[in-house]
Amino acid sequence: MAEPMKIRATMTGDVADIKVLMNHVMETGTRKDAKTGQLVPAHHINSIVATVGGKTVLQAEIGGAVSRNPFLGFKVKGAKLGDKVTVSWVDNKGDKNSAEATIG
């Protein structure tokens, strides 16, 4: 697990536009394997935390209804060029990943 995560953060006026692409299978737990007919166990991201310049700006709880390789976009007012953006997630099996980027 723990494949790379992509973060792109740009300024538009005084608002930072942050886009995150996470790598995750996001299994709902309700899908059946086409070959075996067995349910594929749930495996999805549960929690996401994003910070800008050391302050938490976004805390998310998500479920299996978010698409595979989740995309998340959000906007933060008052951020500055050069601020550090961090994003981390934890899934329902306890796997975790985090990444950081600089607003530019």
Binding site: V15, G64, A65, A79
Partner: peptide, 21 residues
């Protein structure tokens, strides 16, 4: 299971969320 996600915003985060469901 209708719940997709809940996003708590703080410290200047705008009322905006973009994702794929």
């Amino acid at each position: 299971f209708p719940m997709v996600g809940e996003f708590d915003l703080s410290n200047g985060a705008q009322g905006f969320i973009s994702t794929r469901i």
